[in-house]
Computed example of a mutant assay.
Amino acid sequence: MSKVCLAGLVIASCVVAAVPASADSPSGSDEGFVALFDGQSLDGWKVSEENPDSWKVEDGKLVCEGPRAHLFYVGELAPFKDFHFKAEVMTTPGSNSGIYFHTKYQPSGWPKYGYECQVNITHKDPKKTSSLYSVKNVDDPGLKDNEWYTQEIIVRGKEITLKVNGKVMVQYTEPSDQEAFSDSFERRLGEGTFALQAHDPDSKAYFRNLRVKNL
């Protein structure tokens, strides 16, 4: 084997080693996805001004615990329009959280813009994990607290697909004449960013391996 070929093999091996496969999917299935969270800091993210201490980074995970606060992605990849988003999520008993998309930063309150993908397995709210909140709800996602699951959110045009561990939980087509639900919440597709929710002091949830691919 020539020195040129050997060098090429070494380089290729290094590239493969530098991109580990996701724990929830076979090798190569994450091609084209870009990380939104570096596992070490809140770089690229901005916490709302209310209760910023409700969010922290711990052992490679984003952790929410405390009064209402939202963590918005404000990195250079935003805004997003058509995309495929993946994240690994783990809830604790009785906890409530959420993943907003097509939203935008706001300093306080529940996010007015975009849709919410619910994060809730045993909280009293009947809208459970992978519900398109108050639009198309899921009663039982078949999950357990204290176990990691993979949440996917896919937006193509007016189509929204939500998946848990590869299983489609919600498919929704936004009407072409969609109107805001109320003066408080404008649930319409357009473009925007992601936001993670700290819901209340009794809710603790974890997020890791957040990644996205533009479609």
Rank of each mutant, 00 (worst) to 15 (best):
V63Y: 06
M169Q: 04
K167P: 03
P111Y: 03
S25N: 09
L71A: 13
W148Y: 05
G109K: 07
I153K: 00
V4L: 14
L162M: 04
A69G: 15
E159V: 11
C5T: 12
G8Y: 03
F101P: 11
I160G: 00
P201F: 07
L215F: 09
S29W: 06
P20D: 08
P67M: 01
Y149V: 10
P20T: 10
T103R: 05
S27H: 07
P107T: 03
S134V: 12
S2H: 00
A35S: 14
M90G: 06
W55I: 01
Y113V: 07
A69D: 11
S203I: 05
P67H: 01
T122W: 02
E159D: 14
G60F: 02
N209A: 11
K46N: 02
V119A: 09
S27Q: 12
F37T: 06
I11C: 14
V74I: 12
D82A: 11
G142S: 04
Q106S: 07
Y149T: 06
S25A: 15
E179A: 15
H102K: 06
K81Q: 15
P141V: 00
S130K: 07
R68G: 15
S41I: 11
T122V: 00
G157C: 02
S54L: 09
R68F: 05
N209L: 07
L6P: 05
S2I: 02
F194M: 06
G166T: 02
G8E: 04
K81Y: 08
E147V: 05
H123Y: 12
Y73R: 12
L71S: 12
I11D: 04
M169E: 02
Q197F: 09
S131T: 02
I11G: 09
C117E: 12
E65W: 12
N51V: 13
I160M: 01
Y113W: 14
V119W: 02
G192R: 01
T92R: 13
I153E: 00
G166W: 04
L196Q: 10
G60R: 04
Y206R: 05
R68A: 14
K86Y: 08
E152T: 08
A18S: 15
T91V: 03
V47W: 05
D177V: 04
Y172Q: 03
V63W: 03
N96D: 03
L215S: 03
Y115T: 09
P26V: 04
Y73W: 13
N214I: 15
V47G: 04
S184K: 15
S95M: 14
V34E: 08
F37L: 10
V155M: 00
F83G: 08
L62E: 10
S203P: 05
Q151I: 15
A12H: 07
Q178D: 00
E31A: 15
A7I: 15
H123R: 07
Y105G: 02
A7Y: 11
R188E: 04
V135H: 02
Y149R: 06
Y133H: 03
V34P: 01
S131M: 01
C14W: 08
D183V: 02
F72N: 07
L42Q: 04
L71H: 10
K204C: 03
Y113P: 06
